[in-house]
Design a protein around this nucleic acid. Structure first.
Lengths: 376, 376
DNA sequence: CGGGAAGCTGCAAAGGTTTGCAGTGAAGTA
DNA sequence: TACTTCACTGCAAACCTTTGCAGCTTCCCG
């Protein structure tokens, strides 16, 4: 029933190798023959069998996408963009969900390794050393985690957190809380570092609460702590927590932004729909997905055929580019931030005119490449 | 570099066929041999090459999942559940996004057909006849669309819409609007039919507005029409539209639920986070994903090996189960619905005590199987 | 007209696995 | 003892495609 290269060959009166070349190396076949073969293939509805092709070329034209939690609204835009970019390059994407579990993560890499040309690891929860070990098994690109010697796609949340804190300082806030995210998250460390530095530089105090689960519930549960701490502004690890916090504060009768200002991180679609609309640090999630796919595909465009002929093994994994890419973030000011107790006193210039959404920083897509090297 | 069945055979001193059987038919190999082989395989880190296996068995152990828009919050839970269920059965899933475009949809089915054992078509936008045609190319399970002769997973939004309208009637609403969804959506037709019938039965009037794009913007744009129509309650095609509508009404100074009650459909996570929290018809999205995978896998468990040996071609696609499954929905009452102008007059019993979330209807997961047949 | 190059095509091996068939040895039966 | 049965293992073909090599024509140049 399935039509193979052999059927096409028979129909068009040529050898199977000619049919093969018609598809994989058209310049090697007589134009006349080519059109005839293509016509027959079209007629018969021939589609090359990728498994057979993979078997001999060592390239599956598949990539794996490993996601901590598909239902987390942060990821779908990334998945969508990655899949689109991959398809554009004639690759298909396996998507797998780890349920935030490091063990599942590792198993999935193993399970996928033989079946894909590379894996995108998004916001991994496992250890750096394990990631490095797995990267010897299959080409890896890591999103939202920095590892020397491995290609990474990062989002400059540090810069975003700084902008957020400066925004709050400009509004006259001096007591600021940071709702920490999950332990072991690179993003979390970056935000904490940058927000701390910016607060110090502005003569303000930053109270860190956490680590916490990066969910709405996690934010909601912190409302009382925020109240007790007496801060007038809060920066949350992500939008979900920010939204949860606003809900919790509301339940305590604390109004946002009148009494407490809240800033999130991610700019998920949801943050435009809550009331008040969330001021947040927009992360270029879609761009990250596209970039990561590009890096992965470029990476394995180099070592061509797998274990074939002589000398295989010596050259395997010898040279590998390890560029790291840092994507810009931008602060999006909406309605969840407002004047603080010190408003208009010392930093009048930075206070925005109204609550209408306007943007700081660049276009979001452009990237900053940083380094390139050779790993084992 | 890649370790094959041959390496394991050499290491454990048996023939490759024995190694193969150790994995695919363990009962055929001596327990003693088996443990030795398994130990060697473990040692060497052997993973079977699925492409090679697929080549001979005709089963890739992959399935395709075609989604109109991954970024639409309705789908991620379905994707997550389907992927989990598939993995549980040792299948991997390709996820592909069509951007709501029927042509892309068709191309994706073609592209995936040879590479998967079956395809899940979620909320397809293409025509019934095209779907039927494609189903001759690759086993298909359709979610959110009813086609005779094809296995379908449906959600009983009709029942949900009826419950929603009855809820509104019970609250004393007599003028109700329905915000229609996209043209050609089976769900849309079901909701319209059931809501219309329920309204008529309750002596109320149902104004249908639409069709409309099933997005927040689509809902927002309808606020003025809703205002002009003078209705006191609205049922929206989905939560996104309901949320957009609430926002639009808010901009017009119309309060929900005091002046207008709003009900959505889907119960996306977001609907619990907006203010007011949305009353909505919960659809069992995750269960749909799991069920669809089960049906697909069960369907192609039957015709075993592809084109092999004699008689192939005659038996191909001869018998195929076409069960249709209807999943229950349930009305979740939250804060976006309240008493209408006729409250307490004629249907006092149905009015709920307070706005606190409580549930009607069953557990959501259980299914109703309907029919089984033979197609060409 | 001879020699060589160039363009195109066919041949056959290779890739990793599954599986029908045949072969082995031991155990059971008559 | 001879024969059958059984459990296990080895053999080799098959799945579909790619690709290095070699063969064939045709054409060009001297």
């Amino acid at each position: 029933m399935p039509v193979t290269i052999r059927d096409v060959a028979r129909a068009s009166g040529v050898h199977i190798s000619t049919v093969s070349r018609t598809f994989s190396a058209p310049h090697l076949v007589n134009p006349e023959t080519r059109v005839r073969v293509l016509a027959c293939a079209e007629d018969l509805g021939y589609r090359p069998n990728r498994a057979a092709r993979a078997l001999i070329t060592g390239r599956t034209h598949n990539i794996g996408l490993i996601i901590a939690d598909i239902a987390n609204p942060f990821f779908p835009p990334l998945i969508k963009a990655a899949e689109g970019q991959a398809r554009h390059r004639d690759y298909h994407v396996f998507v797998a969900d780890t349920n935030e579990d490091p063990t599942t993560e590792e198993e999935l890499v193993h399970a996928l390794a033989k079946q894909v040309d590379g894996v995108l690891l998004c916001s991994p929860r496992m250890s750096n050393s394990l990631i490095e070990q797995l990267s010897r098994e299959v080409p890896l690109v890591v999103v939202n985690r920095q590892l020397t010697g491995l290609p990474c796609v990062l989002m400059d949340v540090g810069q975003g957190a700084r902008a957020a804190v400066e925004h709050l300082l400009g509004l006259g806030h001096r007591e600021i809380a940071l709702l920490g995210g999950p332990r072991g998250s690179w993003t979390n460390r970056e935000i904490r570092r940058a927000a701390g530095a910016a607060a110090r530089a502005g003569g303000a105090e930053l109270t860190v609460l956490g680590p916490n689960p990066p969910t709405e519930t996690g934010g909601l549960a912190l409302a009382e702590q925020v109240q007790r701490s007496g801060v007038t502004a809060v920066l949350a690890y992500n939008d979900l927590m920010a939204i949860g916090l606003i809900e919790g504060l509301d339940a305590l009768g604390i109004r946002v932004p009148e009494q407490v200002s809240v800033v999130g991180v991610d700019d998920i679609a949801l943050s435009r729909l809550t009331r008040p609309k969330l001021t947040t640090v927009a992360t270029p999630t879609a761009a990250a997905g596209r970039t990561a796919v590009d890096m992965l595909l470029q990476q394995d465009a180099e070592p061509p055929r797998a274990a074939r002929g002589i000398g295989a093994g010596t050259a395997a994994g010898a040279r590998r580019t390890t560029a790291q890419v840092m994507l810009q973030t931008e602060l999006v000011i909406r309605d969840s931030t407002g004047p603080g107790p010190h408003a208009g006193r010392d930093r009048p210039s930075a206070a925005p005119a109204g609550p209408g959404p306007h943007r700081l920083a660049g276009p979001g897509d452009p990237v900053v490449a940083t380094g390139d090297g050779v790993a084992s």
